[in-house]
Design a protein around this nucleic acid. Structure first.
Ligand SMILES: [Zn+2]
Ligand SMILES: [Zn+2]
Ligand SMILES: [Zn+2]
Ligand SMILES: [Zn+2]
Lengths: 153, 153
DNA sequence: GATGCAGTTGATAAAGATTATCATTTATTA
DNA sequence: TAATAAATGATAATCTTTATCAACTGCATC
């Protein structure tokens, strides 16, 4: 799976005329093995540990490129902080974020395609992608409904 | 509608112990009459035209406060740029953004609630809100499928 | 394998966005 | 009206993202 992704990304870059450079390969390999949802800063520091010379600008550039080519997805865990994850083929899922502790859970039960055709017809748009994020409280953060006692104490 | 929103927001602020200040009222009134999806900068410049002394920090603070209290919603039109809109009671809608021209259309046919209960059961989260944004091409941007000819010319 | 070149990189400057600080002002209550 | 805590505006400080450009490199050609 991971190897297939790496190969597919490499082929994709080359087919579109982009060079297979060391920094790009390092970023692709790292992302292919990352299970979480790192932000730019995390990607940068992780890559730099085994590829010390890399610059932050290259990370921005490569992440943008991988987004454009569809090898990455961007998600919004919290305001003003984009996070990234591999866009595994056939793995369509979304995220549930706990507003208490920040925990992120993925869920695959998306029913957007049930209404997208109708929306396309009405709006005459061609819908290519969508993002869906749900926010709430996880089981650990639920019980203490301290909102009343601590909010304006 | 607009007046009701303004009154509700004023009451909401006071009930939670926040002062009804000039800057806050100016921002609330402006937002109540805004039909689009302004960002912080737009809110700031609009408010300043009739409330010249206001500082950008106050706009940030007030917008954050209104978000927390549920009087505003944040949406993501494009990467790294939050935009805001009034959270009208009973008006649940989402956005369709054209990747070509940036045009934004709202649609109300959301079916997320059909799966949210199941997700809550499985994950033991309590879901409080969700964001859904669709991206694609509007009718005007569709015809010229110049992607092939211009992309790497 | 050497050569040429366009694409890429890293360093760093520049620009923008957001937050922190703090003296002054203001809404609210009594 | 006076007392008080909250809020504001100016601005410094911090972060984030983008622009610039000389040096470097993958890759095609020979
Ligand atoms: Zn939690
Ligand atoms: Zn989906
Ligand atoms: Zn809207
Ligand atoms: Zn919805």
């Amino acid at each position: 799976m991971k190897e297939i992704y790496i190969e597919t990304a490499k082929e994709g870059l080359q087919r579109q005329g982009y060079k297979l450079t060391g920094p790009r390969l390092a970023i692709i390999r790292y992302l292919a093995g990352e299970k979480g949802h790192p932000d730019i800063r995390q990607i940068f520091t992780r890559i730099r540990s085994e590829h010390p010379g890399i610059g932050i600008a290259t990370v921005y550039r490569t992440v943008d490129l991988l987004l454009e080519l569809g090898f990455l997805r961007a998600i919004t865990i919290k305001k003003n902080q984009l996070r990234y994850e591999v866009n595994w083929p056939g793995d369509h899922h979304h995220h549930l974020v706990c507003k208490g502790c920040g925990r992120v859970i993925e869920f695959g039960s998306c029913n957007f395609q049930l209404i997208s055709k109708e929306i396309e017809k009405v709006t005459r748009f061609r819908i290519e992608e969508h993002i869906l994020e749900a926010y709430g409280l996880c089981h650990d953060c639920l019980p203490g409904k301290q909102h009343y006692s601590t909010e304006k104490m």
